[in-house]
């Protein structure tokens, strides 16, 4: 039996709850993520379709659990790694250094 795969993001028409009219003022870090996305796209280091593909590749539970800009920064990271703009090693080491610098416990 063929059972085609429906992407978790492809949700049009699925049952869902009442729409709560929620909004928040964007945090500065969220705007920085947005700004980096805009700049990387305009400089040819990332395409919006690559971003979307990488967001869609998130496991369903992560897609639902992560906030909007958490999904975005994770997709920016994935795109830059795929393109070789960044390496996993340098990104990992940089994140460690920042966590130490900012006193974030493991």
């Amino acid at each position: 039996m063929r059972e085609p795969f429906r992407g978790h993001h492809d949700m049009g028409g699925l049952p869902a709850g009442r729409v709560e009219k929620t909004e928040h003022d964007y945090a500065f870090w969220e705007k920085r993520v947005d700004a980096m996305n805009v700049l990387l796209a305009s400089k040819g280091h990332l395409r919006v379709d690559e971003m979307r593909r990488n967001i869609e590749a998130l496991p369903p539970d992560a897609y639902d659990r992560m906030s909007y800009y958490e999904r975005w920064i994770s997709a920016i990271a994935a795109t830059l790694l795929q393109r070789g703009v960044l390496t996993a090693d340098e990104l990992g080491r940089k994140m460690e250094a920042i966590a130490q610098r900012e006193g974030v416990p493991r």
Binding site: M36, A77, V85, A99
Partner: peptide, 10 residues
């Protein structure tokens, strides 16, 4: 932390 790291690297 990932956002800061990517921004600083870029």
């Amino acid at each position: 932390i990932m956002e800061i790291a990517i921004r600083e690297l870029l």
